[in-house]
């Protein structure tokens, strides 16, 4: 019953199998790091260029050592105000609307499904397959008649429609993972439908909800086509500010990089921080 001591040398000396394993692991690690850095390089280069003075940005060979300056960032910040506001309002507004609409809809397609839930879900997904670009002319005319052209409301409405199908699909997948016994137990405890959603389902799927909202935020924040076609000044968003930062002549690469960095950074940071949630949303939510 007394613990037998391990034979000396057996645990101390690394064994050939271990060595092979460790070197194999290191090999894969190096490959992965090289690939990842190469993949990340454009982003890195964008940020580096943003800190250059304009004169150092367009040189051959490209300069890697320079005196960093914030002057381009200052310039970008100075004109950014209204664009930023529009982007935030359109992104946040549409995301809230998406969540409000998609939670009940996902519920009706999963927990207590309507009779033709399959058709319903297919319909939502199929609207995603109709290219919005095909209707851009008439959309313009409709917006014109409804006096919604160049209005932030128009973007909120359209971004909501753009993200709704994916949100319903994802939230539905998360709801399917809620254990049935839990819902039945809530039923037996006298919970109605509303209580079932707010008291049982929402707390369980809240991580999924976060990742869904996150993906909606990414797509809404980054959207250019609709904004470019349907807004001018009153609702112009960050991507449009980015375009406007490209002048017709003169040196502009550092300025452009600074603007691109600032426009991208909010979503990149949110994405990095909420990475697990994002991964889950994109993958698990999308398929299971």
């Amino acid at each position: 019953m007394t613990a037998l001591p391990l034979r000396p040398g057996h645990s101390g000396r690394p064994r050939p199998q271990r060595l092979r394993e460790m070197s194999g692991r290191a090999g894969w690690g190096i490959v992965a790091w090289v690939v990842a850095i190469a993949f990340f390089l454009p982003v890195l280069w964008m940020v580096i260029t943003a800190f250059k003075p304009e004169s150092a940005a367009e040189t051959w060979p490209p300069q890697f050592i320079f005196k960093p300056t914030l002057s381009e960032f200052r310039l970008v910040f100075s004109g950014m105000g209204p664009f930023l506001t529009h982007s935030v309002v359109a992104t946040v507004g549409s995301t809230i609307l998406v969540v409000l609409l998609s939670v009940p809809a996902a519920y009706a397609l999963s927990v207590h499904p309507v009779k033709h839930w399959r058709d319903g879900l297919f319909f939502f997904i199929s609207t995603k397959m109709l290219p919005i670009v095909a209707a851009i002319g008439p959309l313009y005319v409709i917006a014109l008649h409804l006096h919604l052209l160049d209005s932030i409301w128009l973007l909120i409405i359209l971004y909501t429609a753009m993200n709704l199908p994916l949100a319903i699909w994802m939230i539905r997948s998360f709801m399917l993972e809620v254990p049935r016994e839990l819902l039945e137990a809530a039923r037996l405890d006298g919970a109605g439908r509303i209580r079932e959603i707010t008291g049982v389902i929402l707390p369980i799927i809240s991580p999924g909800l976060v990742s869904t909202a996150l993906i909606c935020v990414i797509f809404a924040w980054n959207e250019l086509f609709l904004a470019l076609n349907l807004t001018v000044t009153n609702a112009a968003t960050m991507p449009m500010y980015l375009i406007s930062s490209v002048p017709q002549e003169g040196l502009y690469i550092a300025h452009l990089s600074a603007a691109a960095t600032i426009a991208s950074v909010p979503v990149i940071l949110v994405g990095w921080i909420a990475q697990r949630s994002l991964v889950r949303g994109l993958s698990m939510g999308a398929i299971k």
Binding site: F40, P239, V246, I253, L256, A260, S264, I268, W272
Partner: peptide, 20 residues
């Protein structure tokens, strides 16, 4: 690092690729 390109604003990605 690998997921970052997905997070970059497509307009920014296009301009940065086109220029720098």
């Amino acid at each position: 690092l690998i997921i970052t390109p997905f997070l970059v604003m497509p307009a920014a990605a296009a301009l940065v690729w086109a220029g720098p």
